[in-house]
């Protein structure tokens, strides 16, 4: 059985002027110890999905309209606020994109990590302190530095502190929202390597949100491609990288400049992502798709399994036309 099972999750932001349909009918599942990559462009609804899992959507304007989020068999959407607080940071924890703003600037880093342990673990302050020093060593920061403040650390080091904090309570699920986007490539390589090693040690499952297909290829077991609030394609690495089916997935790969092949000219996806407050009818991608037909504009494609474990949301793939 999977650790996390999301079914039909729909999240809207409702304001006076309009309704932003950020996440629409999303199904996802993650098995214990596995990593799922959630890929998409800005505004695709990746972060909203993650915040939805932790029930951190600000209400109003945000609202989880429908769906189930089964974690360890329990529906998180039905839990009380008190129970959710016990789960956050303990069973499920999150690494945020920007390490510069995720830390409290006027609190020593050691104390920030110890706070999480003390709040969730059944332990004394001294034990929490000890655990925080151990976590710092685990992520490659000398224990002496625990009394320093965040501004005394570089970006890569800050992200290590955030990771230490996220893993301090040995969570079952780690949600990493673009954990390395703010870092340089060499530092990114160090941090990704470390996350992978620690994940293996603690047998943690991970939801990795990213826009970088290179990172997905190196760290994930399964991939979900998100577009305009929907999962348009889902499968394991072989399905997505060797046999992509959805025109959007194919377009993403064609947009990337290659490091080993000579491409005179890139073939970008034409146009722009639709405004989530004003989504087109039918297939959400039809305005940018090269294979669009009349039916695509009217009929909303279903999320179909085209081979075991490989799901695609496209009318023309379903009909076997492309």
């Amino acid at each position: 059985m999977s650790l996390l099972d999301i079914k039909g999750l729909t999240i809207h932001y409702i304001t006076h002027q309009n309704t932003v349909r950020a996440v629409n009918d999303v199904d996802l599942s993650i098995d214990t110890g596995k990593t799922l990559g959630l890929v998409g462009e800005t505004g695709a609804g990746k972060t909203t999905t993650a915040l939805g899992i932790l029930r951190l959507i600000q209400t109003p304007p945000g609202k989880i309209v429908s769906g189930e989020i089964l974690f360890d068999g329990k529906d998180l959407l039905k839990e009380s606020e008190h129970n959710i607080r016990m789960i956050r940071g303990n069973d499920i924890s999150m690494i945020f994109q920007d390490p510069m703003t995720a830390l409290n600037p006027i609190m020593r880093v050691g104390d920030q990590i110890a706070e999480v342990v003390y709040l969730h673990g059944d332990c004394t302050k001294e034990e929490a302190k000890e655990r925080s020093l151990h976590m710092l060593e685990t992520v490659g920061i000398r224990a002496e530095r625990s009394t320093e403040f965040p501004h005394q650390f570089s970006g890569g080091m800050k992200q290590r502190v955030v990771i230490a904090m996220a893993l301090a309570c040995k969570p079952k699920l780690l949600i990493a929202d673009e954990p390395t986007t703010a870092l340089d490539v060499t530092i990114q390589a160090q941090v990704l390597k470390m996350i992978n090693e620690l994940k293996a040690v603690y047998n943690t499952s991970m939801l990795l949100i990213t826009h970088d297909l290179g990172i997905v290829a190196e760290t994930c077991d399964e991939v979900a491609i998100m577009y305009a609030g929907q999962i348009v394609e889902y499968g394991n690495l072989e399905h997505i990288f060797d046999n992509p089916k959805h025109p959007y997935t194919i377009g993403l790969f064609k947009s990337l400049p290659s490091l080993d092949k000579d491409v005179e000219r890139l073939s970008p996806i034409k146009g722009l992502m639709p405004d989530p407050a004003n989504l087109p009818t039918g297939c959400k991608f039809h305005t940018r798709c090269d294979h669009v037909c009349e039916d695509c504009k009217a009929i909303e494609p279903a999320y179909q399994e085209i081979e075991p474990g490989h799901f695609v949301r496209c009318l023309r793939v379903e009909r076997g036309e492309i």
Binding site: T186, Q188, A189, L213, E218, F253
Partner: peptide, 8 residues
């Protein structure tokens, strides 16, 4: 070598 390559 630090660049992640989008090819499995």
């Amino acid at each position: 070598s630090a660049i992640p390559i989008p090819n499995i």
